[in-house]
């Protein structure tokens, strides 16, 4: 069965006829050609595929494209503001929070969601717990945790400054 799926993807309305069994991650990667979102497992555990749907982090490998019809979807490609990196992206680089880069988009999207939910309250223990659904084999998590903490502190500072 083919159906037309329409969504806002990184701020742009996109539409395509796809098989109903098409996963959101395949819609993003193959139909729309945005390959930053990755597939690292078959059991919804590794988190390489995390994107935001209607403002919330979800695993795009565990959602049909059809379920996202009419939704607002944000991927790692839509995070930076032009050439200006999102603070979480910048923090991953500054803290060496990535090595091979494969889990990185999912980590970053999870981190952005985490910081949005917890604000400036993030401590190491919370960060580690919140990363339960994202697996990295390269970094040992040490610098990912550091990066998220740094971004969280910085974003809290930015918020205070604008208040």
């Amino acid at each position: 069965m083919m159906s037309k799926v329409t969504m806002r993807l990184n701020g742009k309305t996109v539409s395509a006829d796809v098989e109903d069994r098409t996963l959101l991650v395949h819609f993003i990667r193959e139909t729309q050609g945005l390959t930053g979102t990755h597939v690292g497992c078959d059991t919804s555990q590794c988190g390489a595929c995390v994107v935001h749907v209607d403002g919330k982090a979800v695993k795009s490998c565990t959602m049909l494209a059809a379920q996202a019809d009419g939704s607002d979807v944000l991927t790692v490609e839509g995070l930076a503001n032009g050439d200006e990196l999102h603070p979480v992206q910048a923090a991953f680089r500054e803290n060496h929070g990535l090595q091979c880069g494969f889990c990185t988009p999912g980590m970053i999207m999870t981190a952005v969601d985490m910081i949005e939910r917890h604000g400036a309250k993030l401590d190491e223990k919370t960060i580690r717990h919140e990363l339960e659904g994202n697996i990295c084999r390269c970094t040992g998590y040490h610098n990912i945790v550091k990066a998220i903490k740094a971004a969280s502190d910085q974003m809290a500072g930015m918020k205070t400054a604008t208040e």
Partner: peptide, 17 residues
């Protein structure tokens, strides 16, 4: 800091798939 990072943190890495 790593020269290669920009592509990975912006989703522009190019893997075989």
């Amino acid at each position: 800091l790593r020269k290669e990072d920009k592509r990975f943190i912006t989703g522009k890495g190019r893997y075989t798939d």
